[in-house]
Design a protein around this nucleic acid. Structure first.
Lengths: 218, 218, 218, 218
DNA sequence: GATGAATGAGTGTTCATTCAT
DNA sequence: GATGAATGAACACTCATTCAT
C-alpha cells in the first residue's frame, strides 16, 4: 500500500504488524462502505473494493471471508453510531429539541449510508435482517421508554397506544425528510417534529411546558 | 400446464392460439412475481422463471424481451390496483373508516408483493424509480386533497403543515403494521388509524363528528 | 402466404399444388438470396428468410432441409448464369470485345450476388468449395480453349504459359474493377481488357487484326 | 505450457511476471490464429481458444476484451510483415527477381494466414475493412511508385494505364498460385512473374536489360 | 503476509430446428 | 400441407474465490 517509506527509513519505527493489518482492514471497510453506497451491493465486486483500498484482490480475502462478511463488519462498526440517544421529551421546547435530534439522527443515517444496501439485502439475508431487527428493537425500546416517562408524568394523550406511537415516530424518523425527494414537498425537520409532538402531547401540555421557562432536562 | 379446463370440459376442439399464448404469458408473469418475491430480482434467473412456469428458456424470450421487461409488465399490471381511493375524512367515525381503508390498502400491497423487489431495483433503475415516484405523487395528491377538504371545513388542526401531515400518513401507511415483523410489536390497524386521525383532527372534532349520527361513508 | 383469395373465390381455378409449392420455394430462394446478400449468411436466420418470403418458419423446413441447403439450391440456380460464354479472342477489335464481355460478366456476378456469402462459407464447407471449384475449372477450361484457338493460329505470345495466362485472366475478371472500391483507383473495363489482351497478343497482332476490316464477332 | 526453458536451464528463480503473461498472451494469440485459420472466426469460440492455449475461459478475457480484439491484435502483429518491399523492376533479370519476391510474399501471406478470416469478416466489420484497405492502398502505392520509375526511364509499355497495371499485379499476387488449389493447374511463380513482366515491359526491353550483364539495381 | 493471475461455474440471451395443432 | 409456438443447446462474457509465487 504505502509501505515504501519504511523501506527507505529502515525498520526503525517498526509499526506493529497488527496495526498495519488494522489499517488495511479499515481501508477495506472504508472502501466497501463507499462503493456499496455509490453502486449498491451486488454491483460492487470484491476486486473493486480491494483496488479502491489499494490492496490486491487476494488481500481482501485475508481480512474478510467474503463480500457479505465485510458488509456485516461494516454494520457492526456503524450500527452503534446509528443508535440515537434516548430522547428527552420533557423540556421547555420539545418541538425544537426533537427537530434538532431528528436532524442529528438524519446526519448519522446519511453518514452511515447503509440505506443504500439494506433494502437490497434484507430480504435475502435473514441473519442480516435479524441483526438489523435487533437494532430497531433497541431503538424502539429507547423511544418507548422515553414516552413512558412522559406518560407517567401525565403529559401525554391518554387515548393513544404508546407502542403504536413509538412505532410511528420511528418509521417517520427513518424515512425522514431527506429521503423524501421522491414525494413532492420536502417537509423540514421542524414540521416533522411538530407532527411527532402532536402524537405525544396534547397542545395545552406543550403550552404549559413552554411557559415553565427552563424545564429541567431529564 | 394450464390445459386443465380442456380436461374438464372434454375436447373442445380449438383453444384459440391467442388464449393459449395469454395463458403462457400469465404463467410467466405469475412465476416471475412469485420468484421475485421469494428470492429477489437479481437472484432470480430467466431460466428459473421459465422452468417454474413449465416452459423452456427460449419461450420466456418470446413473451418478454428480458427479465426487466417482465418486471415492468408486472408493475403495470399491479400498479393501478395499488392506488388507494381518495380517502374520505369527514364521516361519523373517521378512525374506523380509516382503519378499514388501511387494511384494504395493506392487502393490496401484500398481494402486489412488489415491496420485495422495489427496494432492490429503485436505486439502479431510474426509469422504474420515475414510474414509482409518479405513483407516489399521485397518492400524495389524493391524500392532500382529502385533507384540504376537511381543512376548509375548519375541522383540522390549524398549526400543522398539511403537506407534512400528508407525507406522514403516506409513510405510515406504506410501512404499515404488516411490515412491522421487523420491529417488535405489531401495531394493529385501528391504533394506526387513531394515530393518523390525531394528526388530522383535534379530539373535539372527532367527538362532534361521531355525535352527528350515522353518516354513511363510501 | 396469400391464399385468402382462393378461400373467397372457392376452389375454382385450382392452382395445381405443385405450382403453388414452386411459388413458395421460389419466394424462399429469392428471400434467402436477398437476405444473404445484404446481411451475410450467418447473420441471416431461417425465421427471417421465411418471414421475408411471407411464409411460416416451419414451411421453410418443408422446402429445404436447412439453411445450408437453401444456399446450395441458390448456387445451383445461379451458377449456370455465372458461366461466361467461351470468349472469342480473334476479332477485329479484341480489346473492345473483351471489355464488353467483362462488363457483362460483372453484371452477372453482381446480380448473382454470391460474392457476399461465398468467402464466408467456402473455407468451412468443403462440399460447397468443391461445387465452386468445379465451376471455376469449367470457366478455366473455356478460357483456355479460346486461348488455344488463338495460339494455334499463331496469334499469341510464344513465351507465355497459356495456363498461367488463363488463370491470370480469370483472377482479374473475378476481382474485377467493381470490387476494387477497396484499392484506390477504379480501373475501368477497357483498361482491364487492354491489360488482358497484352497478356495474350503481341501488339503487332492486334494491329493486324484491326486492319482486317469489320469481322463480326460472336 | 511454455516453461520449457526453465526446465532446460534449471530453476532460475523468478520468471518475471510480465514474461509469463507475455507467454500466455502469445499462446492465446497463437491458438486464436490457428483456430481461426482452421475453423473460421465465427465457428471458433473464446472457450475453445482458451482451452487450446491451455488456460481457463476467464483468462482469455484477462488478455483480450473479446474475440474480435484478439483478431485485431493478430492483425496488428502480422500486418507489417505482410507489406512487401517496394519492388525493383529494373534489374538484369526482372522476371527471376520478381518470381523470388512473389515467393517470399506468398510465404508471408501463408504464414500470416489471415486469408482464412478476412473474407468472413470484412463485410461486417467496417473498422477492420478500413485497416485492411489502408494496407492495400499502401501496397498499391509502392508498386505504382516502382512502376513509375521504370516508366520514366522509358522502359515500359506506353499504351497501358499504370494504375490498372498496378492493380492487376496486386490482385495476381494476392490470389497467388498457392491459393490456386481451386483452379485446376498450379501456375508457378516464375510463370506468374513472366506474366507480370509482360504487363510492364515490352519483350525487347527485357532482352536489353538482360544483355546489360550487371545492371545496377535501381 | 501479500500478490494478482487464474479459475470455471454461472448469467442473460439467441436461433436452428421440431412438432402439436 | 402450413403454421408458429416451443425447444434447449450454445454462445460471449463476468466475478467470487483460490493459490502459486
Amino acid at each position: 500500500m504505502a509501505d515504501r517509506e519504511e523501506l527507505l527509513v529502515g525498520d526503525f519505527p517498526f509499526v506493529p504488524k497488527q496495526e498495519r493489518a488494522q489499517q488495511k482492514r479499515n481501508a477495506l471497510l472504508e472502501s466497501g462502505h463507499s462503493l456499496f453506497f455509490s453502486k449498491g451491493y451486488e454491483q460492487t465486486t470484491a476486486k473493486e473494493i480491494a483496488a479502491h483500498a489499494g490492496v490486491a484482490t487476494g488481500t481482501f480475502y485475508r481480512y474478510f471471508s467474503d463480500k457479505r462478511q465485510l458488509l456485516m463488519a461494516l454494520l457492526e462498526d456503524k450500527l452503534d453510531k446509528l443508535l440515537p440517544p434516548e430522547p428527552t421529551w420533557v423540556s421547555c421546547d420539545p418541538e425544537a429539541l426533537l427537530a434538532s435530534l431528528l436532524k442529528a439522527h438524519n446526519n448519522r443515517l446519511q453518514e452511515v449510508g447503509l440505506r443504500r444496501v439494506l433494502p437490497e439485502l434484507l430480504p435475502k439475508d435473514p441473519e442480516l435482517a435479524e441483526v438489523l431487527s435487533a437494532a430497531r428493537r433497541k431503538i424502539h425500546g429507547r423511544i418507548l421508554s422515553g414516552l413512558k416517562h412522559a406518560s407517567d408524568s401525565g403529559l401525554t394523550w391518554k387515548d393513544l397506544d404508546l407502542d403504536t406511537v413509538t412505532w410511528s415516530i420511528m418509521v417517520l424518523a427513518e424515512n425522514g425528510p431527506e429521503k423524501g425527494q421522491q414525494s413532492g414537498k420536502q417537509a423540514d425537520f421542524l414540521e416533522l417534529a411538530k407532527v411527532m409532538c402532536r402524537l405525544v402531547f396534547p397542545p395545552d401540555v406543550l403550552v404549559k411546558l413552554r411557559s415553565k421557562g427552563s424545564g429541567p432536562a431529564e
